[in-house]
Design a protein around this nucleic acid. Structure first.
Lengths: 138, 138
DNA sequence: TATAAAAAAGCAACATTGTTGCAAAATTTA
DNA sequence: TAAATTTTGCAACAATGTTGCTTTTTTATA
C-alpha cells in the first residue's frame, strides 16, 4: 500500500512528503469521506493546519480526491477511484450522508442520472447527495 | 407584498420584526439563492450578524426557506415556493449554480429524479445540484 | 390603549475555520 | 552531493460561526 501511495503521488508529479502520504493513506483506509476537520483530528498535532488545507487543495486540483457538497458548511473529500485526470473529474457516482452515524459514502455503483434542464441551462456537472439511513445503521 | 411578508411570518407563528421582514423581502425579490454573506451585505450595518444567523435558522426550521448544499463552504438559502411545513420540506426541485455569474437558482420545474439505492440504504431526501452556465450567461 | 409577559435583537466575548507571506526544512534534480 | 525547487511550519490575520446576557421590541391581555 505504501508503494501504491507513493505511486499515486509521483504519477501526479507531486513530491512525496510525510504529510501527503499520511493524508492519502487516510483516504485509502477509509470507507467514508472526510471533512477537513476529521483529517485534522486524525493527523494529530504533528502537522500544521495550513499544510492540510494546501494538501487537500492540490489533491483536488490533481484529481486525486473529489469534493462532496454539503448543507452544513463542512465540505467532505473522498478518494477518486475512477482515474480522474488533472482538472477533470469524472466521478459520476452519487453520495450518501447518513443522518445517524454521520458518515458520508461514495455509492460508486449508483450513477448520476441524466437530467433534462430547461432551455439555456448547460450543466458541466451534476452532484447528487442523498441523505438518510445507511446500510450499517438500518 | 408587505402584506404578504407579514402573512408569511404570522402563519408560521413568528413575531413580525423589521429584520425578519427585510430578510424575507430579500428572498422574495430575489431570483437566486442567497448565502449568509450575501444577506449580510444587503442588510447594511443596521442589523447584527447574529440576528441574521438566528433568522436564517428559524426560517429554515419553519420551512420558509431551504438550504442548498455547496462545495465551497457557503450554504445558500432560498425561499420555499412549495408550501413546506415546519420540519418537513418537500421541495423536490433541483438547483443550478452558474460558474460564470455565480448565481444559484431553484429550477422549480425540474423534479428530483428517482434514484435506486443499494440494499440497506434508505434516503429521506435527495439533493441535486447542477453546475454550469445559466440561461443569462449562455 | 396601557401594561405585563414573551420573544427577539444587540452586544460583547469568544471559538472555529480559512488565508497569506515568508523563512526554514525537506525533496527532487542534475 | 550540491543546487534548485518544492513543501512545510509559523505567525499574523481575516472571516465565519456561537453563546450568554441585557436591552429593546413585539405580542397578548386586562
Amino acid at each position: 500500500m505504501k508503494r501504491n501511495i507513493q505511486e499515486i503521488l509521483k504519477s501526479n508529479r507531486l513530491s512525496v512528503t510525510a504529510g501527503r502520504e499520511k493524508i492519502l493513506r487516510l483516504f485509502l483506509e477509509q470507507s467514508g469521506a472526510l471533512a477537513h476537520g476529521d483529517i485534522e483530528k486524525k493527523m494529530g498535532s504533528n502537522f500544521d493546519r495550513v499544510t492540510i488545507y494546501r494538501t487537500l487543495q492540490v489533491f483536488t486540483e490533481k484529481g486525486i480526491i473529489h469534493t462532496i457538497p454539503s448543507a452544513d458548511n463542512a465540505v467532505r473529500y473522498a478518494f477518486c477511484k475512477d482515474n480522474c485526470e488533472e482538472g477533470h473529474h469524472h466521478d459520476h457516482h452519487i453520495h450518501f450522508m447518513c443522518s445517524r452515524c454521520k458518515k458520508t459514502y461514495c455509492l460508486d455503483d449508483v450513477v448520476t442520472p441524466d437530467i433534462r434542464l430547461p432551455k439555456g441551462y448547460n450543466a458541466a456537472q451534476i452532484e447528487v447527495v442523498a441523505t438518510g439511513i445507511c446500510k450499517n445503521c438500518s
